[in-house]
Design a protein around this nucleic acid. Structure first.
Lengths: 145, 145
DNA sequence: ACCTTGTAGTTAACATGTGAATTACATCTT
DNA sequence: AAGATGTAATTCACATGTTAACTACAAGGT
């Protein structure tokens, strides 16, 4: 079979799709002086509650070295806190602070509006199906390797 | 509507999907001491022929500052060449060199094998449909804004 | 107790992503 | 021709991605 052209390859399509979607969120994040990754970390902690770094990295899809730097930045701005785990000097529980929760809540309406606009343009059913197919792809590559 | 959870949001799904796919290609690229972005630039030039930097950046989905650095690196290894455009001192045509073509051709078989394996795991029809849906999403966000 | 092995997190080094500012050159306007 | 405006590419500054090496601590084996 021919190698896929750059115009129709899965990696390129996934990259471009993510770009056009994120373009809608960037202005909102920039207004609050927060990066896309920092925002992801805050949302994961807001949804899941306190987590250790490894679990947080997995859920936010951020590599450990990046997470170390992001945690440092978020701690300095007091959006999150860390508490060492008793009985294990290596681990620490990371938790979102009230300030962090306030930020998430402040952004929530705009966030929903942006998602709704995307759904409206693309189609709600297509959107759901696309999510299903992406999850299926991730599953097929994760389980068997 | 509720804000999407981090477990089922389009940006996260696109990010994770790209991760699991690229994981298959990274070992191949690492063996040849080439980055994912450098590889993309070479493939675009191999497919499209000589291009100016702006057009190359668009086709490879790489931002201008990154492309400047990538071009420099690829030039030093003589994978590409640049020729100034007559009549316009700003522009330059970037072209892949024979060495660059040789690298692309050397990687081609393994590249096809990796794509085929992904298609086999995920399903050829699903793969095609996913590409269609991603292109449609990109289209819906590109045309109207 | 000591040593090995394993795990959580960090640090280091380098490439890229991102937005803003800057340079070099073209083109338009008057 | 001089100045204003626009465009291509680069540079800067900082954040993140990526791999490898390293530190700190934990758990097991002898």
């Amino acid at each position: 079979m021919l190698p896929p052209s750059t115009r129709r390859s899965l990696p390129m399509a996934l990259l471009r799709a993510r770009e056009v979607i994120m373009a809608h969120f960037r202005p909102m994040l920039a207004r609050h002086d927060i990066t896309e990754q920092q925002w992801r970390v805050l949302r994961v902690l807001a949804e899941a509650g306190p987590l250790e770094a490894t679990e947080l990295a997995n859920r936010a899809s951020i590599l450990p070295p990046s997470l170390t730097r992001i945690i440092k930045a978020l701690e300095e701005r007091e959006f999150i806190s860390r508490n060492k785990v008793k009985d294990d000097g290596r681990r620490a529980l990371l938790a979102i602070s009230p300030t962090g929760v306030a930020l998430i809540e402040e952004l929530a309406p705009e966030r929903v509006a942006i998602y709704d606009a995307i759904e409206k343009r693309y189609g709600a059913e297509e959107h759901e199906r696309l999510l299903d197919m992406l999850e299926s792809l991730i599953q097929s590559e994760t389980v068997e390797g």
